[in-house]
Design a protein around this nucleic acid. Structure first.
Lengths: 150, 150
DNA sequence: GTGAATGCAAACTCTTTGCATGACT
DNA sequence: AGTCATGCAAAGAGTTTGCATTCAC
């Protein structure tokens, strides 16, 4: 159902932008489509590459501006796994919540989710004096392919 | 015991570098001293500022080179909390293990530790096909001062 | 003396911003 | 028409690298 989810997100995002008073624009629609298509944990460069590949004239600045807007509206999640590059992924409100495991050898990023981990974090939130609004967990290691190669 | 720990780390680090065959050097010693002094979650710029302030002639490049070396030897931990800036802190082998909570309003970074969280992560490690070697957890929210100010 | 480590400056990457042009309502 | 959004190019910030010099062994 991944593609169904992506479709949902695209529609929801377009609608949310309109509701928030933003004009529709070809560039932004292309960025949104690219995010839906590329899936989890993507970079601005990956979006730019995909769009250029299909002959789009969307500039890098517009990609960053779209990502920034979507992030501020909570429509994408921005994070990073320690590479010095921002990563993004579609955020379905109330949708799935996952974290990432990174292969330090080849850079592959994969999602995972864990109920016990979430429970531990929620327990923690009540014990700190910060008002916690979000959390990120990143595991670092070596992926199966790289392990086999060594 | 924080200062004692810092002293331990400084001595251990100097010794580990020597054992690994690296020459002693004034620049590196100054960087190591700065890390011990500045404590948890510091940036290269903060080290540079401290060293410049005390009249040191150590260049930024040497700071980055020292941090890179120490990171590769596991003597410092490198991480980031989503600002696009690398942060570092002394890593005592087998020593304390903590994570960070960031105030998204003022940028304050504070450490925390939680046994249940660690348990959840370790449980997870055995269920993934990656060979996990490290993990980072970052909580985002608003610190008490910023909450009061709003 | 030899090679590692340094400092400086230039190069690089990622991201943001200024500004004139073009597009949506 | 009046703005908002875009594309381009330039600016910025953080980090890395090339190279001649200095320093440790």
């Amino acid at each position: 159902m991944a593609s169904q989810t992506a479709t949902d997100w695209t529609a929801h995002t377009t609608e949310a932008l309109a509701k928030a008073g933003y004009r529709s624009s070809a560039a932004r629609e292309e960025v949104i489509a690219a995010i839906a298509e590329l899936g989890c944990s993507i970079t601005a460069r990956e979006i730019a590459d995909l769009l250029r590949e299909r002959g789009s004239g969307v500039g890098l600045a517009s990609i960053y501006r779209a990502l920034d807007l979507l992030d501020r509206l909570g429509l994408v999640q921005r994070f990073d796994v320690g590479e010095g590059v921002a990563r993004y992924e579609a955020a379905l409100p109330g949708g799935d919540h996952h974290h990432h495991v990174v292969c330090d050898s080849c850079g592959t990023v994969e999602p995972f989710e864990d109920e016990e981990l979430e429970r531990a974090i929620h327990g923690l939130e009540s014990r700190t004096d910060f008002a916690i609004s979000a959390h990120d967990v990143t595991l670092h290691g070596e992926c199966p392919s790289c392990r086999a190669r060594d």
